[in-house]
Design a protein around this nucleic acid. Structure first.
Length: 290
DNA sequence: AAGGGCTTAAACAACAGGCA
DNA sequence: TGCCTGTTGTTTAAGCCCTT
């Protein structure tokens, strides 16, 4: 049994799609089919159910995948550990960013000024087909609990309500959220952690926001507010930057609108030196922002 | 030279979706 | 419902490269 066969199997098992796995592995699809069938032959059981043109992991495949993941992770951790022992901190950091992606360019460029030899592999969403996200570190909202991880809070920020200057409440400095229950909202797309938090603020204030625009891009959200199309929640730090004179940020008295971002890392895995350096750097970086 | 592992190319089968 | 078309997975054959 070859290590390569196990890597191939892991990829096919994750995608349950031979062609996509072959593309991922940069090998021709027939070769991958052949490798998998040889592995099955060696194991003496079928790892996949073939139903027509689709393949699905079966009970043997699922059991084997669990062990293969453990074995390959252990080998990866071993390589990282040896690199560190040999004094090579040039490895990459697998960084998942599920929140505060706006600050990422500045954070990474600051870090790389100090450690130019450390590279990054950024993960900005977890494909639903991948059951076990693979990262060294993950920046996310504290409301998201990632299984098998430890978290360190890195920044607590207030969430303001941004209104256009011509809005009736624009002359105020603070409001109760229930005062804007009837307003049109511009919001992040559903599924984003910030969106879930702000929806819960509104729910607490006794209303469901009437959302007229959804966008993943903070600058688009700002532009729409300036254009008088609606109001929006704006995190003070991670969405920081000039708001301009055509927009006003209001403090929300009730409910308390804050969020905490955390840095998570998997508990059972060896954290490479490069990732440990970045973890400390990120904690210090956000401490300065806060 | 022989054997193993890989590649590309081709052929085939099974299925999904569109359409009449 | 039946046909057509496109997609996808599998198998086989021929050839290349590397190791023994």
């Amino acid at each position: 049994m070859e290590l390569l066969q196990l890597k191939y199997f892991q990829t096919v098992a994750r995608y349950e799609h031979v062609t996509r796995a072959a593309e991922e592995l940069h090998i021709p699809q027939p070769a991958l089919s052949k490798t998998i069938s040889l592995l099955e032959k060696e194991l003496g059981v079928l790892l996949f159910d073939r139903r027509g043109k689709y393949i699905h992991l079966n009970q043997y495949g699922r059991a084997f995948l669990k062990r293969v993941e453990q074995a390959l992770t252990a080998i990866e951790d071993g390589k990282n550990e040896l690199n560190d022992l040999a004094g090579k901190t040039s490895g990459g950091v697998k960084l998942a960013v599920l929140a505060a992606s706006n600050l990422l360019p500045e954070l990474l460029s600051s870090f790389r000024k100090e450690y130019p030899h450390i590279s990054f592999n950024l993960i900005q969403h977890f494909p639903s087909s991948i059951t076990k996200p693979d990262f060294d570190l993950c920046i996310s909202s504290s409301t998201m609990k990632l299984e098998g991880t430890n978290s360190t809070p890195i920044v607590k920020e207030e969430i303001f309500l941004a209104v256009p200057v011509e809005h009736p409440l624009a002359k105020r400095t603070s409001i109760h959220l229930s005062e804007v229950a009837g307003d049109d909202f511009i919001s992040l797309k559903a599924g984003q952690s910030l969106r879930e938090i702000t929806d819960s603020f509104c729910q607490y204030a006794g209303f469901t926001p009437h959302i007229i625009f959804e966008s993943d891009d903070p600058s688009t959200v700002r532009g729409l507010i300036r254009a008088g199309q609606g109001i929006a929640f704006i995190p003070a730090i991670t969405w920081g930057g000039a708001t301009g004179s055509s927009m006003k940020l209001l403090h929300i008295d009730e409910p308390v609108c804050e969020r905490t971002l955390s840095l998570s890392y998997t508990v059972e895995r060896y954290l490479p030196q490069a990732a440990r350096l970045f973890r400390q750097f990120a904690i210090d970086y956000f401490a300065k922002l806060g």
